[in-house]
Nucleic acid binder design. Structure first.
Lengths: 138, 138
DNA sequence: TTTATAAATGCAAACTAGTTGCATTTTTTT
DNA sequence: AAAAAAATGCAACTAGTTTGCATTTATAAA
C-alpha cells in the first residue's frame, strides 16, 4: 500500500491535512482528477488557489502527471512510476478521453512509439490521445 | 489554385470581405494560425468576436481544423482534404509543436496508426502530438 | 432593381480557468 | 520554545473566449 505522509516527507512537501488527504485521494482514485473534481470532493472547504498550488507542487515533485482533458482544463493522475517525467504529460503511455463522461484514462497498455525525428523535426516528446466511448459509457 | 469566394459559396458562408480575406490567408499560410496571429495580420482592424465566429463557421463547415497549441489557445490550419472531420483535430496526421517558436506544424508524413479499440475502450479518434525543435529553431 | 430575410459585424459586458500579492496560520527546523 | 520556511485563504487580477444587442452587409425573393 501507500503512505501519503511518508511520501510527502520523502518529497519534502509539508504534511498539511489537505495535502495528505489530496495525495490519498489521488492514490485511491482510479480516475484522473480535475481542479473541479477536487473542489467537489472536499466540498469547497479548501480554496482553489490552494488546490492549484498543491497540484503544482505534486507535479513538480513527480507525484502526479498532467493528462489531456476534453476542455483543456488542468487534470492530473497519480504517477505509477516512482519518478515521472516532470512538467509534461507522462510520455510512457497513451491517454483516452470519453466523449460522454469526459473522463481521462491512462492507457498503460498503449505504449507510445519511439520516434526521434521526422522530416527535419527534432522530437523530444510524443503524446498519443484517443477519444471515443469508455467501458461504462458505450 | 483556390478561389476563396467560390469555396465560401459552396459552403454557404456569406462572402464578406473579411471572411474572404481570412480564407485566403489560411490558404496562403504554411503555418497554423491563432486568433492573435489573425488579429495581427489584419492590424486589429477586425473585432476579435468576429474572428472567433468566423473560425467557428469555417471549422463547422470543414474548411479548417483545430490543431494543438502549446498554450491551449485556439489555433487552426487549412484542411488539405476537401471535407475534414468536423469539430475535432484532423485525425489523419500528427502534429508537431516547437518548444522555441510555439508554432504548430501538420506532420502529413506521420500517419496515425489505426487502432479501433483497446482494453474495452471504443476508439473513434486518435491524435498524435510531438514536441521538440523545428527545423528553423534547432 | 427594389424589398425582405438572413447572416455577419462591432462593441461592451460577462464569463471562466487560472494566477498573484499579501496577511495569517501551520509546519518544519534549530 | 523560538525562528524560519512553507502553506493557506481571500480578494483582486489576467487573458482567452463568449454573448447580447443594435447596426450593417449580404443573400434570396418578388
Amino acid at each position: 500500500m501507500f503512505d501519503s505522509k511518508l511520501i510527502l516527507s520523502e518529497k519534502k512537501i509539508s504534511k498539511t491535512k489537505f495535502r495528505t488527504d489530496l495525495l490519498t485521494l489521488f492514490y485511491n482514485s482510479k480516475k484522473s482528477l480535475s481542479v473541479e473534481d477536487i473542489l467537489i470532493f472536499f466540498n469547497y472547504s479548501v480554496n482553489k488557489a490552494t488546490v492549484y498550488r498543491s497540484l503544482e507542487s505534486f507535479e513538480s515533485k513527480g507525484l502526479i502527471h498532467k493528462v489531456p482533458d476534453n476542455y483543456n482544463h488542468k487534470r492530473f493522475s497519480i504517477c505509477k512510476e516512482i519518478n515521472c517525467a516532470v512538467n509534461s504529460y507522462d510520455n510512457n503511455h497513451g491517454h483516452f478521453i470519453c466523449y460522454i463522461c469526459n473522463q481521462t484514462f491512462c492507457l498503460d497498455d498503449m505504449p507510445i512509439p519511439s520516434i526521434n525525428s521526422i522530416k527535419g523535426y527534432d522530437i523530444h516528446e510524443l503524446n498519443l490521445t484517443a477519444k471515443g466511448y469508455c467501458e461504462s459509457c458505450k
